[in-house]
Design a protein around this nucleic acid. Structure first.
Length: 452
RNA sequence: GUCCCCAUCGUCUAGGGGUUAGGACAUAUGAUUCUCAGUCAUAGAACCGCGGUUCGAAUCCGCGUGGGGAUGCCA
């Protein structure tokens, strides 16, 4: 099987949601495969029917599509090695298992005891029989990992490497068997997966050998941890990929961010497109140390990618967040949205910056910042606005500065009450945009009804 | 317990036998713009410890410590 054509796979188990770490594993596989001009397979490892969750499967598909990680074989794509669901490949596993029976590499024995929720064995709870794989125990095994280098484990030490169960009491097969069989059948050449699989890889190497098959190249990538170094779990900030679209992250930003978690192009650039990542990616530049997940930098990166968007593209992407917030899609709204492109980190923040287009909600902290002379200032401004022969945002805006100077107030301080009166907030777009969007009548009305 | 992996600013990282140990996020200060945001400038901030090799170690080696992973009829 000396094919030079690279074939990789992402093989998630649909037992939960799509984890950010899983997304990064998928990304590294994708980048490597595209770089090599190979084929990227999506295989669903759903052998554990009890824990199988349909929604989790959809989360995997939609998450990968959102990130732009198109697979070449698998769900919706077909391929030469169908089916791509392990639950539908039982006969293939039977065939391979039979080989192990014939060669005497498996043996039937009493099932192990059950375990409590802490993982401790409960004596005397063994029921039925299972089939175990007989490991070769004639020395030290060495794995030549593309990221971690050589790693060795002594298989003469049975304590660490008890013969593994391959077939359950109910006749179904364990991950190790199906994973290896599928990698053989699907002609996978490179396995890029989380470091938590390193110990499994020795088991898999033995299985490849037992089947007389050439094992793939393995590359174990470091795990992603919480900021405190603990393992990321479902509840942790940023753990679920599904929340990123909702929060207003751009997929290109998330891709960029997780690509740089454990991999580095060895230069000082930080902002990359998917295309650039594909060009630059290499397994040799993957780190060995685990990386902690920093949502703050992820947001900063999102901001950088927002800045790169064409203005109308930004409006298109931000619009759904505004309409979801109850705002109506109007030309004024679009203008307002476009004006805050350089001010937000997340698309989700956009409605907060533009909701004044339709209504004013006076924010408490904005009101607190008002000086005593706010009313006078507003009255003076209203008078000046009224005096304009024709409403023109530029002209109106130009009136503000001299008026402030005349009254001996700093321009910023003078404009603050106007901003609060018109938008209810101390943050927002430039005043010229606000004046232009609202028009004279609305500007005067809002000044009038302002409760200060 | 046993086995495996890892260790540079708070975080992501570059570098790697002789460097002012570089960049970015975050933080602080200043400038600027209409407040905020943004932008610009400046500052503080790191080679886990101990031995060894060496003229010289953050870098190589050993030990220790710390962290992570594995040790399932989960994947």
């Amino acid at each position: 099987m000396n094919t030079s054509h690279v074939r990789t796979r992402f093989a998630p188990s649909p037992t939960g949601y799509l984890h950010i770490g899983g997304a990064r594993t998928a990304l590294f596989n994708y980048l490597f495969t595209r770089k090599m001009g190979g084929t990227f397979v999506l295989r669903i490892e759903d052998t554990d029917q009890e824990r199988h969750v349909e929604e989790a499967m959809q989360a995997i598909f939609s998450g990968m599509r959102w990130l732009g990680l198109e697979w070449d074989e698998g769900e919706g794509k077909g391929g030469a090695y169908e089916p791509y669901y392990q639950s539908k490949r039982g006969d293939i596993y039977d065939r391979y298992f039979e080989k192990l029976v014939q060669s005497g590499r498996v043996y039937e024995c009493p099932a192990p005891n059950k375990r409590d929720k802490d993982g401790n064995e409960i004596p005397g709870t063994s029921e039925g029989t299972v089939w175990r794989f007989r490991f070769r125990r004639d020395g030290v095994m060495t794995l030549h990992d593309a990221v971690c280098g050589d790693i060795s484990v002594d298989y003469r030490n049975e304590e660490n490497t008890p013969d593994m169960v391959l077939k359950r009491t109910d006749g179904s097969y364990i991950f190790h068997l199906v994973n290896v069989v599928d990698d053989i059948e699907m002609k996978i050449t490179h396995v890029i997966r989380g470091e938590d699989h390193i110990m499994n890889t020795f088991k898999h190497l033995q299985l490849f050998e037992a089947f007389g098959a050439q094992p793939p190249v393995y590359a174990h990538i470091p795990l992603i941890q919480n900021p405190d170094g603990s393992k990321m779990s479902k509840r942790d900030v940023g753990a679920q990929l599904g929340v990123y679209p909702e929060e207003g992250f751009l997929p290109e930003a998330v891709v960029n961010f997780i690509a740089l978690l454990g991999w580095n192009p060895k230069n000082e650039r930080e902002i990359f497109s998917m295309k650039e990542l594909i060009e630059l990616f290499s397994l040799e530049h993957v780190n060995r140390a685990a990386a902690k997940f920093d949502i703050t930098k992820c947001k900063w990166m999102n901001q950088q990618h927002i800045l790169l968007l064409q203005p109308d593209e930004f409006v298109q992407r931000a619009l759904p967040f505004c309409t979801k917030h109850g705002l109506t899609d109007t030309a004024q709204l679009r203008t307002a949205i476009a004006s805050v492109q350089s001010k937000v980190q997340l698309l989700r923040e956009v409605p907060k910056w533009v909701h004044w287009v339709e209504e004013v909600q006076y924010e408490a902290d904005a009101m607190e910042g008002l000086q005593d002379n706010a009313r006078e200032m507003l009255n003076a401004l209203a008078e000046a606005f009224r005096a304009l022969p024709e409403w023109d945002a530029e002209a109106a805006f130009a009136l503000i500065k001299p008026l402030c100077k005349e009254r001996g107030v700093k321009v910023g301080a003078g404009m603050y009450p106007l901003r609060v009166a018109l938008t209810g907030s101390h943050v927002g777009p430039g005043m010229d945009v606000i004046l232009g969007t609202l028009g004279r009548d609305e500007v005067l009305r809002r000044i009038e009804i302002f409760p200060r």
